[in-house]
């Protein structure tokens, strides 16, 4: 049964990682995107650029810096020491941190677009009716930006699933801990176990197709709501 587990384990691990990263980025991405959509600060452009960096940088750049940062000589060492480890590399926690950084723009870009589409009228109307800021956010902003939220979640999830370069550089390829689907495919190809590689790779193609179709449908619906 080891053969089956070789397929199932990376899939389960990858899905778990993608769920956690998507949830974290919902929390982290919302205030950043809101600030980016409303602020007039001179810092807006630089901050937006920093957030968008992972879109442009090769994953090896992030992987290289994370490898150094995660180790005992970087900030990751003291952090990992909190639970008795020496390094954040080679751990699921490390992958979560890396993926949050790597997938950040995939959450913030759609959210920001969604927030920017909300007119001042809605917000002012809510304020006139005595809604406090939390009320306004939950009852007005979130429903109006729901297409942005959906797109952001789908893209974040998909992008985390598709991560490879960063994981290759900091993961250590530990089954059940850091061996994601993309790594497993790479290994199978390298070991000439092409049948298993096909199973996972074919699954990824199907997955990507479904995701892209979903995003396109979401975009069309969002277009109708706004227009």
């Amino acid at each position: 049964m080891a053969g089956v587990n070789e397929i199932i384990q990376p899939v389960t691990l990858t899905l778990t990682l993608a769920f956690i990263v998507t949830a974290l980025l919902l929390v982290i991405g919302t205030p950043i995107s809101w600030w980016l959509s409303r602020s007039r600060s001179v810092w807006k452009a630089p901050v937006a650029a920093v957030v968008a960096l992972p879109l442009v940088l090769p994953p090896t750049v992030l992987g290289f810096y994370l490898l150094l940062a995660f180790g005992p000589n970087g900030p990751g060492g003291p952090l990992a020491a909190l639970w008795g480890a020496r390094t954040l590399a080679f751990s699921f926690e490390g992958l979560v941190i890396a993926s949050v950084l790597y997938s950040l723009p995939f959450m913030t870009q759609p959210l920001r677009t969604g927030f920017e589409a909300i007119g001042r009228d809605s917000l002012e109307a809510a304020a006139t009716l005595g809604a406090n800021r939390v009320d306004t956010f939950v009852r007005v902003v979130v429903p109006e930006a729901r297409a942005g939220y959906l797109t952001g979640m789908v893209l974040t999830f998909a992008h985390t699933v598709g991560e490879f370069g960063v994981v290759l550089m900091i993961g250590g390829n530990i089954p059940g801990e850091t061996k994601l689907v993309s790594m497993a495919i790479y290994d199978f190809v390298e070991r000439l176990e092409w049948h298993k590689a096909h199973l996972l790779a074919g699954g990824m193609v199907l997955f990507a197709f479904v995701v892209i179709t979903a995003v396109m449908l979401l975009d069309r619906r969002a277009g109708r709501v706004v227009g």
């Binding site: 490898l67 180790g71 020496r86 390094t87 590399a89 080679f90 250590g172």
Partner: peptide
């Protein structure tokens, strides 16, 4: 405790960066 480098260069890189002792 085993961490696996994709090749022997990456194995050294894991050690030299301090992530593996």
């Amino acid at each position: 405790k085993l961490v696996t480098g994709e090749n022997i260069s990456q194995t050294l890189q894991f050690i030299d960066s301090g992530n593996a002792e």
